[in-house]
Nucleic acid binder design. Sequence first.
RNA 1: GGGCGGUUAGCUCAGCUGGUAGAGCAUCUCGUUUACACCGAGAGGGCCGGCGGUUCGAGUCCGUCACCGCCCACCA
Length: 948
Amino acid sequence: MMDKTFDPQAVEGRIAAAWEEAEAFRAGRPERAGAALFTIVIPPPNVTGSLHMGHALNTTLQDILCRFERMRGKDVLWQPGTDHAGIATQMVVERQLMERQEPRRTALGREKFVEKVWAWKAQSGGAIVEQLKRLGASCDWTRERFTLDEGLSRAVIKVFADLYQQGLIYKDKRLVNWDPALQTAISDLEVVQVETKGHLWHFKYPVVDERGEETGEFIVVATTRPETMLGDTAVAVHPGDPRYKHLHGKKVRLPLVGRLIPVIADEYSDPEKGTGAVKITPAHDFNDFEVGRRHGLRLINVLSAEAELTLRDNEEFLRGAGPSADLDILLGELDSLRRDVARKRVVELMEARGLLEKAEPYTHMVPHGDRSGAVIEPWLTDQWYVNAKVLAGPAMEAVRAGKTRFIPKNWEKTYFDWLENIQPWCISRQLWWGHRIPAWYGPPKSADGTVIKAGGGAELASLSDHWEIFVGESEEAAVKAAEAHYGRPVKVIEAGGLGEAVLAGEAVPLFRDPDVLDTWFSAALWPFSTLGWPDETPELKERYPTSVLVTGFDIIFFWVARMMMMGLHFLGDVPFRDVYIHALVRDEKGAKMSKSKGNVIDPLELIGIYGADALRFTLAAMAAQGRDIKLSAQRIEGYRNFGTKLWNAARFAEMNGCVLDPAFDPRQMKITLNRWIVGETAKTVAEITSAIEAYRFNEAAGAAYRFVWNIYCDWYLELAKPLLQGADGPAKEETRAATAFVREQLLKLLHPFMPFITEELWAITASPHRPRASLLALAEWPDLAGCENPAAEAEIGFIVELISEIRSVRAEMNVPPAAQIPLVLVNASAGVKAYVEAWDETIRRLARLSEIAFSGAAPPKSVQTVVRQTVAALPLHGFVDIEAERTRLVKEIAKLKGESSKIEAKLNNREFVARAPEEIVEENRERLAETLSKQEKLTAALERLQGA
RNA sequence: GGGCGGUUAGCUCAGCUGGUAGAGCAUCUCGUUUACACCGAGAGGGCCGGCGGUUCGAGUCCGUCACCGCCCACCA
């Protein structure tokens, strides 16, 4: 005997183990040889991660697709894995070291630290994978990959080396987004603009004449960053701005520093903004950098990696300023100040000198690192870049040509907009956890072929712009290339020991770039690196391009676009045919879930309370395209109840001996009721199938829900009770078989959405004599084409409507539920009579009637209603309240009148009759006739009531 | 500043190619009829944000305005 409810906690683990044991999710199962292929690569979650709602939604949708296609007979590969997540992981381990008061990263050294990270990964890195399994993800876990795996690393190194040889990866010295907290460069995408309240300070820069004497005139510049003024090398005005025309070519004295800097005319300066004159700090502002480049201005870098003032490095610049420089203050007091402290101090100094015109409150956008939250500094460094512009062309073209489809389509625009304006992609990170860049540096070779010898550290640094670069897929390859280049033996050393090695003069020293690659660089290769590339594996050959990518819109730029670029460049084809972009999961008020807001709903907690199936079904039911999901526990509870309903329907079938007969043929049934439910099932199969094919998950879930609850349970099982509980015979046998058959179909239909409960029911309801041929996960998707049955629909439809109508009237007339009353059908047609006689007992039970009679006229004092043209009269005698009935009829007639006059107006409109499709016109005529006839009958009933 | 979405029942949302406005929850009334109270029966509740337009016909298409949300760009 089954329990009354399904206990997810007790069952889920066991079911998951059964799947694993049977290797149900393994790609390339022998019996599927030659089957159509279906491939999805999972968006690899961070190893540091724990399951959040975004993962839960993402995983659920992919799993629905995979289970659906697997049941349709395809050979499915859902490729799982995790991402090493450079910055995030390094931060986690560093924090851990700090908490345990162990030596810091820098104290440990690179090798030891990386070892620690691997140890951490081995111990707690796999948590997310276990959590995905709890959700029921049917990945081929035997193929799990990690972006730092040996194989994937090989792919990364090869891609880097190839792109370098092709000139698509290059090293450049320019401004990058520098994160002073993490001490690394980050890409544009990792910078978030945050609205920040600050000030706009107006500084007066004195204008000087040819001899360097101040003329008494000032040019006023506005800035939000006073501390960077120490690195100003010009003031720009718009060429057409009349206010400043006379100053073109003149100079101003940079306050505090004292150096003379030019006033330049440049279109960049906007007369509308600030004072129309803008200070130019090429080393600390992206726009200024460009202006500086146009005008050949010097770059004065006044900030350190920690974003502290480094004025000593610029002594030469400061000393060249002449007598008015506040050298002592600059070098003594300001040097090494943090940027925010320096800002205040510079303002004070300017004010003290009468050069602060005004300071006004000002709200503006300030760039922050998305991981560290630190204010990002545009900073001049050497970094590696990918020429994304070249790779973006084919990526756009492929989508334009329809080789990859975005669903919903409107995301294509977002994709195009970004790619059209793409900037060089900074891929080097000053971290230790990640793929180390396969570039080796050697000392410069002079024109005459001699290797330039270098002295100590400072001298080395000054040479850094001139290193020879050797990129290779291995150290051996790089050494070989270097030896060929220098014509001398080469020795690989640590960067720090370079000076001595060179001085020793024996071998040419070579050292490897200490930086690692952006995590997204390896992620961009995921669709082919996980399939074995650069090896020509069978999987790669057969499964690339993959079928579909399922992901959130927040990583279209980070990931989707880059996979497109890399896939097209290295494989010559798109990485996936479809990209299904799903929504964000928000809290019930619509706010983005975040740890800091404390509104995060933990999927694991929900799974613990309601079970994985309930959570999955909820997410699917709410996953309408193009809209965020606001999740509430109440909703999940509702779908948990749905599971219970399904469970009890199966339980009922079990109690009534409904066992599946494999020989059962749904097309050979005799009983109308059974034909009807199989017909309804067929409709539902078609509906769910096409909805999943079109990624309309909510519609598929909705169709399944309605069918199970409102059709199978509410009507079929109720109507089947007399047959199931009646005397033995062919009708009972057929109904038992049909009940079991339909249950089988809905377990299959629901399996992609609720894999655990359906698999469990599949096992429980197996016939004791005939065990299941396979797990439900591997069973065949239903195909009931040709089982629709309009005749059965007409009959059962009438019965359902009749019962509903009587129930409604009874409730409205306040007839006590216990009261059994008679029903009289007036002038019923032969067809209706046949229906009713066939269902006499059931109608009486469900509508709580004492008897059903046929007559040529409605009995006096009866309440009347119309069901599909037939008047149904309930002689209520003792119960009827004439007033209440009159009110009910008047109301009902008014409603019908409104409806009929609307249709009449439509049909009287010649244009409508002439232009609307014939079927629509016909439909309206029928509706009018129906409405009028019903109206007539109720009006007659009302008149009789008044006569009585 | 550029772009994308949203505005439908008290709440949360469906409504795909224009053709009788739907669901879940909540509310109200009733029901211990052995599958299920995580249940059953019934009811109430909507000028589909405003204004124009196209059309025989608009929640659905076009324009426009308002408000809400998101993305991109922007340290004067």
